[in-house]
Each structure stands twice: as C-alpha cells, then as structure tokens.
C-alpha cells in the first residue's frame, strides 16, 4: 500500500481526508489522544477477549496440552489459538469426537510484521450442538498448513481459494491449484504487500493483448 502513493491518491475520492482513512502507524496514534480528551467515555477501549471455559476446552487441553495455546471468547464467539503443528489433530478431534460436522469456512489473514505472518482460520459448526467455533493457527512463509479435505470435503475449494489469494500451501490437499485467478498468474492478491490495483502485467499483456489492465 505504502509503495504506491499515487494509486492511493487516485482511488481516494477525497484526498483531504486521505489521512483519516490510512491505517498507518502515525495517523493511528494521532487522533486517539484527541478523541480521548473530549469524549473519553463515549469510546471505551472495547471488550477484550475473555478466557473461554467449557468442556471442549478441558478435553482438548487434556489431550493436547500446551498445543492449545489459548481458548478465548470475544463478543460471544469462541475460538482456539493452537500451535501450528497440532492444528490437524485439533480439527480431527473436533470433527470425530465433538461432532463439529460442518466446516463453515477456511480463510486466512496476512500479518506481514509477525514472525508467523499467515494466520489460517477454520470456522466450524456443529448441527447437534448448534455451536460455532473458530480454530486459528499461524504459519511461517512457505510453511504448509494441514489440509482438512480428509475431514470435510468442503475444504477442497476453500483451501484452493486461500492458496490462490495468500499462497499458503495445504499439506495433503488432493488438487491444490488456483481457483479464482488464472493458473499462471503471478502473485497472491490478498497479501498485504500486494497493491490494490496491482496486476500481473505480464499475464495481462500475453493473454488479453493489451498493455495494461488498468
């Protein structure tokens, strides 16, 4: 984002408010004290994740010990943060023993500044318990995440999309190819270092016969 200031300006219809909509470190720090000075009670810090205590948590902790790093509740939603190495075991356990029979979604978030920049999130739902939880594990660049296709068939396309958009590989996926973008496209658009109007110009030139897709 920061290495394309021109594009940002062009896309921002109100350049005078550009500062307010740029989540850079500087701006983030600046308005905060100002807001706190005149309307401190109107903008509380917000709820914080609380430890989640439930039978599943105890069960998973008993089985996997420190592999379950955190079990939290935030805004009424429960999630596990697990060691990347035990992520598959956690999913398997939840699928086989706790009746989480429906994999709602697999997605990822890119935090480039972290040591483990790719956070993969599995959202699970259980029809029997009418309960939804999330399992999160973070991976290094080029470190594969475990594939859940053997547990839920729906993971196939969902993981392909994560691979397409983030470049995260899934170990054990039967057919890991791009799904939305062309097969020979270069780059993974949902990474934070991929600009919003950035394209694979080479691909555009060869396949569409035009100089630029913009």
């Amino acid at each position: 984002m920061t290495d394309e200031p021109k594009d940002q300006d062009r896309l921002n219809p109100h350049p005078e408010t550009a500062g307010a909509s740029q989540p850079t470190g500087q701006e983030k720090g600046a308005p905060k004290p100002a807001a706190a000075s005149h309307s401190a009670p109107a903008k509380p810090a917000g709820p914080t994740p609380q430890p989640w205590e439930a039978e599943i948590v105890d069960r998973l902790r008993a089985r996997l010990g420190s592999g379950i790093r955190e079990a939290n509740t935030y805004l009424g939603q429960n999630y596990f943060i697990v060691e990347p190495s035990v992520a598959y075991q956690v999913l398997e356990l939840l699928h086989d023993e706790v009746e989480f029979d429906y994999l709602v979604d697999v997605t990822a978030v890119h935090y480039p500044e972290r040591e483990y920049p790719f956070e993969v999130i599995w959202i699970l739902y259980s029809f029997v318990r009418n309960e939804r939880i999330r399992v999160k594990a973070s991976y290094r660049e080029n470190e594969p995440a475990p594939s859940a296709v053997s547990l839920w068939a729906t993971a196939n396309w969902l993981e392909r999309e994560v691979f397409d958009m983030f470049g995260i590989r899934f170990d054990g996926h039967p057919d890991l190819r791009r799904i939305l973008l062309p097969e020979d496209w270069q780059g993974h658009p949902l990474r934070k270092d991929y600009g919003i109007i950035q394209q694979d110009q080479q691909w555009v030139k060869i396949n569409l016969g035009i100089e630029s897709g913009q």
Binding site: A20, A42, K43, A45, G46, P47, P49, Y74, L75, Q77, V104, D105, I123, R132, R134
Partner: peptide
C-alpha cells in the same frame, strides 16, 4: 459513531 473505528478484534457473523 461518525467515524467508525471498531475496537481491535474479529467477528464472524452469518
């Protein structure tokens, strides 16, 4: 709020 700044966190709603 006029300027929407949700607190740090994440949500899944369907």
């Amino acid at each position: 709020p006029k300027v929407m700044k949700p607190p740090v966190g994440e949500i899944y709603h369907s």
